[in-house]
């Protein structure tokens, strides 16, 4: 019996700071996951933690990591050429087939942008497969904005709306919660839209509510849940919400299912 807990080493190719506390690590990795899946990343003797994928490329994965604990502090101490240990990918990602041909509304809050970024990049790289895309991004402050270069590139191809919860004087952009970006969206014809909403629990709750108030049906909305996945295999129970296990049934859920995930 092979041991699914046995991780594989992955060399760090590149380290790119995004904000004061978030850094993107590019890891050498040959088998590409689906956007939205996650890996368990470990450092021997420091521990293991789940991370989503913020970039998928030829021979590499990107993980955008915030320094918040023992494992991440260990990762932040590493240099290019050092190794981390991966097992995965786990879970169901975003259903690119079901999004195909649709107009996409992507709403991402804070680090929730990380798992959605590969979806955005995929859609922009294959414009023929989609019928346009609106990108709504919310961050706590201008200093918390992730992927600045990428966002600048996206803005050449699709409307990108950014808002921050608070900003120092001089911030030229919008201040407010992400739901305030929704009234400005043209959602016609309604049935042509598919929405992807990822972010902190409250952000997802209110964004989904606003989208349904604008007329979107549950089955047009996709969300991704963040939980403290430990095993990734549907055994350890940490990520269970009602009868669903986020690690195997999610982390991406259609809202027809996610509406019943009550904590």
């Amino acid at each position: 019996m092979t041991n699914p807990y046995q991780p594989q080493p992955a060399a760090i190719l590149d380290i790119r700071p995004e904000t004061a506390i978030d850094t993107t690590f590019r890891l050498a990795w040959d088998t590409p996951p689906s956007p939205g899946q996650f890996y368990e990343v470990s450092l021997p003797r420091l521990g293991e933690a789940p991370f989503s994928i913020s970039g998928i490329g030829d021979g590499y994965l990107d993980m955008t990591i915030r320094k918040v604990g023992r494992v991440t502090e260990g990762i932040f101490a590493l240099q290019p050429g050092d190794h981390v240990y991966l097992r995965g990918p786990y879970g169901h990602g975003f259903p690119l087939e079901q999004l195909a041909g649709k107009r996409l509304v992507i709403a991402a809050g804070g680090t929730g942008l990380a798992p959605v970024k590969p979806v955005i990049q995929y859609a922009l790289a294959h414009p023929e497969r989609f019928n346009g895309m609106e990108i709504l991004l919310g961050f706590r402050s201008p200093e918390d904005i992730l992927f600045r270069e990428e966002i600048a590139a996206w803005q050449q191809q699709a409307p990108v709306h950014i808002t921050v919860d608070r900003a120092a004087p001089g911030w030229p952009g919008k201040v407010g919660v992400i739901t305030e970006l929704l009234p400005g969206l043209d959602l016609a014809p309604l049935d042509q839209f598919q929405a992807v909403v990822v972010g902190p629990p409250l952000m997802m709750k209110f964004t989904v509510r606003a989208l349904t108030e604008r007329g979107l049906c549950d089955d047009q909305i996709w969300v991704s849940y963040e939980r403290r996945m430990s095993c990734g295999l549907g055994k350890c129970g940490h990520c269970k919400i009602n009868e669903k296990y986020v690690c195997v049934d999610g982390p991406v859920f259609n809202f027809t299912e996610a509406r019943w995930l009550i904590d």
């Binding site: 470990s42 450092l43 003797r45 521990g47 293991e48 095993c231 350890c236 129970g237 940490h238």
Partner: peptide, 18 residues
């Protein structure tokens, strides 16, 4: 339900357990 964690042996920090 279970939780996994790593430790490093105090006397020999390059060895430990998951």
């Amino acid at each position: 339900c279970f939780t996994a964690y790593d430790i490093a042996y105090t006397e020999q920090p390059n060895a430990g357990e998951r």
